[in-house]
Simulated scan of single mutants.
Amino acid sequence: MQNTYNVSGIRKLFPAAKSVVYLDSGLQSPMPRPVKVALDRYNKEAYENAGPKLIWLNRTEQARNKLARFINASPDEIAFTKNTSEALNIAANALPLKRGDNVLLIHGDHPNNAYAFLNLRRKGIDVRVIPMTEIINSESFLSEIDENTRAISMSHVTFHAGHKFDIEDIGRLCREKNIYFIVDIMQSIGVVPIDVQKIGATFLCSGTHKGLFVPQGLGFLWWDKKRQELEPTYLAAASVEHPSEDFIANSNNMAPAKTARRFEIGNYNLAAIQALDAAIDLINKIGVNNIESYYYMLGDRLIERLDCLGISLVGPRSRQHRAPHIYVLQLQPKEWLEYLSSQQIRCSPERDGIRISFGLFNNELDLDKLLEAISHQMKR
């Protein structure tokens, strides 16, 4: 298998890859050395001089700019959040929905996508679901759309089986029907190219602890700034257009910022944002297209070997419809998870099997160790 980047060199940046066969980046990525360096610098500055706050805020805007370029967006369309779930809740509550309107979701999608909208039922919003199938595109939603459909919310890539849905096609449908479109890109950012101009969403929501290598506690929201009618349900000094210099609240000064800052509330997770800055540099050095191609090659190899062992894949097999990095093996978690852990192989239990999810550092030797362990146990 021909690599699309120097995997052995990148592997040296992830010390955790030396101690365990880590096949669980869909849960949380191990920390690479550049991210640790950024966090160490932040901690040193905080410890030794209580923190250069202005410098930290400048770095925050630097990271915002890098993230914007990474997804082909404008920096003023990005708000920092705590995680994907907070971003989804911000999006759900910003929509100007009224009693009798309906929102379409996918059955079995991430629960935190569903809960953000199910919570709107208390306001009289109808939440409907379409079936989860291997292929989800505009046709999947078309028959469920009526005159009261105001929004579609869904994941780009599913966490539990690695479906990759056609969000660009669905985005076109939403534009045609004037429907708000919210997309959870937690499992796809850093793994496949994300271009907000092509997706045509209203909001994109994500955390940063999987494909972006940052410790948990940081997420972001991308907002289509042409949608100025979408306002936050809460307000803070940080989110108004003209923050008061004397820090005295004024009921005549409550207009939300014209930028995505309207969705931010209070202080930033400054340490994690600086870690994100370093992580984006690392990904850009490799190239997200190269990352995607490499994961697909690893996945092809994995599927080929699974076929030889007679082990089924839970999710889609074709590159067109599968995520490059997530593969769920139809093996009972109760029987297999403890065994694989005893072999120093880290993976996750999912609804219908054992989830294998790749990181930048995984190589064919990792696959060999996984499949040899499975083969050995099957022969017992």
Rank of each mutant, 00 (worst) to 15 (best):
G171C: 12
F165S: 04
E176V: 07
N137E: 11
S138F: 11
K164P: 00
K164S: 03
V129G: 00
G124L: 12
I170D: 08
F159T: 10
R121N: 13
I125A: 03
H156W: 07
L118A: 03
D166K: 10
S155C: 14
E144C: 11
N137P: 05
V127Y: 02
G171A: 07
I170E: 08
T149D: 06
C174P: 15
S138R: 15
H163M: 01
T158H: 05
H163N: 02
M132L: 14
L142A: 13
V127N: 01
E144T: 12
K177S: 09
S153W: 01
K177C: 10
I145Y: 06
I170L: 14
I136T: 12
V157R: 00
N137A: 11
I125P: 02
L173Q: 06
A161P: 01
P131H: 01
E139K: 13
A161D: 15
I130Y: 04
E168Y: 04
E147R: 12
V127D: 00
D166I: 08
I152P: 01
R122I: 09
D166A: 14
I167T: 12
D126K: 14
E147V: 05
S140P: 06
R172N: 15
S153G: 12
E147Q: 10
H160F: 12
K123C: 07
F165V: 05
K164W: 02
N148R: 14
V157L: 03
P131I: 05
K123S: 13
F117P: 07
F117R: 10
V157G: 00
F159N: 09
E176M: 12
F165L: 05
V129Y: 14
E147C: 03
F165N: 07
T158N: 06
H156S: 11
L173S: 08
A151N: 05
S155T: 12
F117H: 09
I135N: 05
P131F: 05
G124Y: 13
E134Y: 13
H163Y: 02
T149A: 10
F159R: 13
P131K: 02
T149S: 10
H156V: 04
E144P: 00
S143M: 06
A151I: 09
E139C: 04
H163E: 01
F141K: 02
H156T: 06
N148Q: 12
I125R: 00
E144N: 15
I125D: 01
L120T: 07
V129I: 03
R175L: 11
G124I: 13
K123I: 00
F165W: 04
G171S: 10
F117Y: 15
D169Q: 12
I135Y: 04
L173I: 11
G124N: 14
K164D: 01
E168P: 02
R175Q: 15
R128A: 03
V129L: 09
K123T: 06
R122A: 10
E139N: 13
G124T: 11
L118R: 04
N137H: 09
T133R: 05
E147P: 00
S138L: 11
V127M: 02
I145N: 09
A151P: 00
I170S: 10
V157K: 02
I135F: 04
T133A: 09
K164M: 04
I136Q: 01
N137I: 04
I152K: 01
D166P: 15
K123Q: 15
R172W: 11
M132H: 11
S155E: 03
M132P: 00
F117Q: 07
L118V: 06
H163L: 00
E168D: 14
A151F: 06
A151E: 05
R175V: 13
S155Y: 02
I130H: 05
S143Y: 06
R122E: 08
E134A: 11
